[in-house]
Design a protein around this nucleic acid. Structure first.
Length: 486
RNA sequence: GGCCCCUUCGUCUAAUCGGUUAGGACACCAGCCUUUCAAGCUGGCAACAGGGGUUCGAAUCCCCUAGGGGUCACCA
């Protein structure tokens, strides 16, 4: 389908939400799977809530996710003449009219309707104002809005690429506002004008916009333009099936970044929320390019998806294992910095050490934050011994002597490296007449404070002879002092 | 409340024209591997919201009910 043009049109009133990010993703996947183009448009006609720092953050998040675009960003706030121009035209063609009703009057009507538990529809009070009446209102200082004149009868049918035909009764649609009294267009009008003028062929957006679509079609009809195709993708819900909000943990792309998720994992996870590639496949790991190749808009689900952090975590740990080690190291630096383990910029030696640490721990962490967390003992020995481990490994018969003996031997070991350390431990345990585990477990506890972690010989080699021996001695000391008298 | 959308394992999902032991992934459980933890491998648990139709046959088509979500702004 040549000539496909989609747009992603966020409003800069907050950080990029996971739902918005997935909408952007689907737009991206669809456009490029069809050889089309992506337009980025900033819908910033709400002066009260739009903030320029959100625009920067939004764009930064898009780049981080690697969701690039071909055109834009365009800003609605810089295209205001387009909307007023089109509105003037509708006015001239008698397809729209000025309305002088005050916000107070409307609010009154609404609360009235609420009492009767009915939906409020603007009654069309100003539909047939005479020139004299308008002049009188203007002299009073009333500033009008512009409303679209909508049909009272018949139906407006939305042809949705995902949901099929959805029919709305025009009687339920009132003469809605297209230009506010401050001269700015409303969403339903601005987005239609832009979609039409920017030659957008497919409007792919969240399901919450489905109910607005008939209004937009009415706008397009009045403007005399051809309609783009619509596709409303399902929403993303919180685990309790309510709307996703801050109380459900991370919801914005930025938060996922700072919690230590990799962009590839987030993108991969989001894609699978509402879409799945060819049937039956066991594989669920896809790069952006692979997704583009397999994407099919018509296979997007109709059902809202519950966002579940567990699967994202699994996916993230998968990407951490598979990532190029240098890239992973670079991605990890800020997180190690945050824990005061390293200080950027790292010199060569520091970088190489960090790289080795990461190689050792990467497959044991689900996020970069967790990775930094479990790496602290590679940087300092300010750790407590895990108490369960102490019971289990330190208070065993002769544990202190064993550790001390190992320390002694390690001091003399040449060369001091992973393989030779392992050999030493194997022969030493044999000499002592104990299992290698009896030596290994207390050693791990002594030099890491933990009972779990990477291969112990790898840790010892990485830590170096000095720190290893020192920590072993310190542990032996601890055992002597704390060993319960039996 | 009106209008609109949706409903398959706990979660994400698959099932060409109606005929499958209803498949996969995550999570969970068990076993294997192993110096621990992970990872990996093997196996297991687990779903068609409910009720009516249509049909030889329904997860799939129709209707009703229930539940969830969205929307009803001079927000987008």
């Amino acid at each position: 389908m040549p000539g496909v043009r989609v747009r992603f049109a966020p409003s800069p009133t907050g950080e990029l939400h996971i739902g918005g990010a997935r909408t952007a993703l689907f737009n991206y996947l669809f456009a490029y799977s069809e050889g089309g183009k992506v337009v980025l448009r900033i819908d910033d006609t709400d002066l009260e809530r739009s903030r320029s720092d959100y625009i920067d953050k939004l764009i930064a998040s898009m780049h981080w996710l690697d969701l690039e675009w071909d055109e834009g960003p365009y800003y609605q706030s810089r295209r205001l003449d387009k909307y007023t121009g089109e509105a003037e035209r509708l006015l001239a063609e008698n397809k729209a009219y000025r309305c002088y009703c005050s916000a107070e009057m409307l609010a009154e009507g609404r609360s009235e309707a609420r009492k009767e538990s009915k939906a409020y529809l603007y009654p069309g009070t100003c539909r047939e104002l005479t020139a004299e009446q308008e002049e009188a209102f203007q002299k009073e200082g009333r500033v009008p809005v512009i409303r679209l004149l909508t049909p009272d009868q018949g139906n407006t049918v939305v042809r949705d690429e995902i949901r099929g035909e959805v029919s709305f009764e025009n009687a339920n649609l009132d003469d809605f506002i297209i230009i506010k009294s401050n001269g700015l267009p409303t969403y339903n009008f601005a987005s239609v004008v832009d979609d039409l003028q920017m030659d957008i062929t497919h409007v792919i957006r969240a399901e919450e916009h489905l109910s607005n679509t008939p209004r937009q079609q009415l706008c397009a009809l009045a403007l005399g333009y051809e309609l783009p195709k619509f596709a409303h993708v399902p929403m993303i819900l919180a685990p309790d099936r309510s709307k996703l909000s801050k109380r459900h943990g991370a919801t914005s792309v930025e938060e996922f970044y700072s919690e230590g998720y990799l962009p590839e994992a987030l993108v991969n996870y989001m894609a699978l929320l509402g879409w799945s590639p060819d049937a039956g496949g066991e594989e669920e790991i896809f790069s952006l390019d692979q997704m583009v190749n397999r994407f099919d808009l018509y296979k997007v689900t109709k059902t809202a998806a519950v966002y579940d952090v567990t699967k994202l975590s699994w996916m993230n740990s998968h990407y951490m294992r598979e990532y190029d080690l240098n890239r992973l190291t670079e991605a990890a630096v800020p997180f190690f910095e945050q824990k005061s383990l390293v200080e950027a910029p790292l010199n060569n030696e520091e970088y190489n050490y960090l790289k080795q640490v990461i190689a050792a721990v990467r497959e044991r962490a689900k996020t970069l934050v967790e990775m930094a967390d479990i790496s602290t003992y590679f940087y300092h020995d300010r750790f407590e011994y895990d108490q369960k481990g102490v019971q289990k490994h330190f208070y065993k018969e002769n544990a202190a002597q064993h550790i001390l003996k190992a320390a002694e031997e390690l001091q003399k070991l040449e060369p001091y490296e992973k393989e030779s350390i392992e050999n030493l431990y194997r022969t030493l345990s044999e000499e002592l007449g104990i299992s290698t585990g009896r030596l290994i477990h207390p050693t791990r506890l002594a030099i890491t404070g933990r009972t779990a972690g990477p291969g112990i010989f790898e840790i010892m080699a990485l830590l170096g002879r000095e720190r290893t021996v020192e920590r072993l001695k310190k542990a032996a000391d601890y055992i002597e002092k704390n060993l319960p008298q039996k």
